[in-house]
Amino acid sequence: QIGDLVNIDLDLEIVQSLQHGHGGWTDGMFETLTTTGTVCGIDEDHDIVVQYPSGNRWTFNPAVL
């Protein structure tokens, strides 16, 4: 839910696979593998929007978090 702290604890290849159809994966997202983020929103597809200390916001398949 919004305000929750979240981490990704999966291998890169699994995360990339799960992201298909959920915003995809870009090289800029590598920070998300090692950094705790804060849930800042849930979109119309029930994907999770997470903000990181860098100021970046990324959209994830809920199965990734």
Rank of each mutant, 00 (worst) to 15 (best):
N61E: 00
G41V: 09
H20G: 06
S17E: 14
G24F: 02
N56L: 02
M29R: 07
V15L: 15
Q51A: 13
V15Q: 03
D9M: 10
P62R: 06
T36K: 09
V15W: 00
Q19D: 02
L10R: 01
I42R: 09
T59A: 08
D4S: 12
W25K: 06
L12G: 06
I48Y: 05
D45E: 09
L5E: 15
T59S: 07
E13I: 08
F30E: 15
M29S: 01
T26G: 06
V6M: 08
M29L: 00
F60L: 14
T32P: 05
E44K: 14
D45G: 12
T35Q: 09
N61D: 02
L10S: 11
C40L: 08
H46G: 15
N56M: 05
F30S: 15
Y52L: 01
L5T: 09
Q16Y: 06
F30V: 15
F30L: 15
G28K: 13
V64I: 11
T36A: 11
N61F: 01
T26R: 07
G28L: 13
E13K: 13
Q1T: 13
W25T: 02
S54P: 05
H20T: 11
L18V: 06
A63C: 11
W25Y: 06
I8H: 05
D43N: 15
Q19C: 04
F30P: 02
F30W: 12
T32Y: 06
N61L: 04
A63K: 14
T38I: 14
V15A: 07
G24N: 06
F30I: 15
T38H: 05
F30H: 12
R57H: 10
Q16E: 11
D11T: 09
W58I: 15
N56R: 08
H20K: 15
W25Q: 07
G21M: 05
W25D: 01
D45H: 15
L65Q: 04
N7P: 03
I48W: 01
E44R: 14
I14N: 11
V64E: 04
I42E: 12
C40R: 08
C40T: 10
L33V: 05
V6L: 02
F30Q: 14
P53T: 00
I8W: 01
G21R: 06
Q1L: 11
T36S: 14
V39D: 00
T32V: 13
Q19Y: 02
T36Q: 14
A63I: 08
T38P: 03
E44Y: 11
L5A: 10
Q19H: 06
L18I: 04
N56W: 01
G24H: 12
Q19E: 04
S54M: 00
L18R: 05
H20Q: 14
E13P: 12
Q51D: 01
G28R: 12
E31S: 04
I14G: 07
Q1C: 13
G28E: 14
D4L: 10
W58D: 06
H46E: 14
M29D: 05
I2L: 11
T35R: 11
G23E: 00
H20A: 14
I8E: 02
D45N: 15
R57C: 09
A63N: 04
T26Y: 09
T32W: 01
T38R: 13
Q1G: 13
N56G: 03
Q1F: 15
H22M: 05
T35D: 11
Q1R: 15
G41A: 15
T34V: 13
G23V: 10
E31M: 01
T34D: 14
D9Q: 11
E13Y: 08
D4M: 05
I2V: 12
N56Y: 15
T35G: 08
G37Q: 02
T32K: 02
R57A: 10
N56A: 07
V50Q: 08
Q51V: 10
V49L: 10
Q16M: 11
W58E: 01
G21V: 03
E31Y: 06
L12T: 07
F60S: 02
H22C: 04
L18A: 03
P53K: 07
V64C: 12
F60T: 04
T34L: 09
P53M: 00
Q1Y: 15
D4W: 01
G23I: 06
H46C: 14
W58K: 06
T35I: 03
G37M: 05
H20P: 06
Q51S: 11
S17H: 12
G24L: 00
N61M: 03
T26L: 07
D9V: 06
V49C: 13
V49A: 01
R57N: 09
D9F: 12
T32E: 07
G55D: 02
Y52G: 03
H20W: 11
N56E: 07
V6R: 03
N7W: 10
Q1M: 15
S54C: 05
T32S: 14
V6N: 02
M29K: 05
V50L: 01
V6P: 04
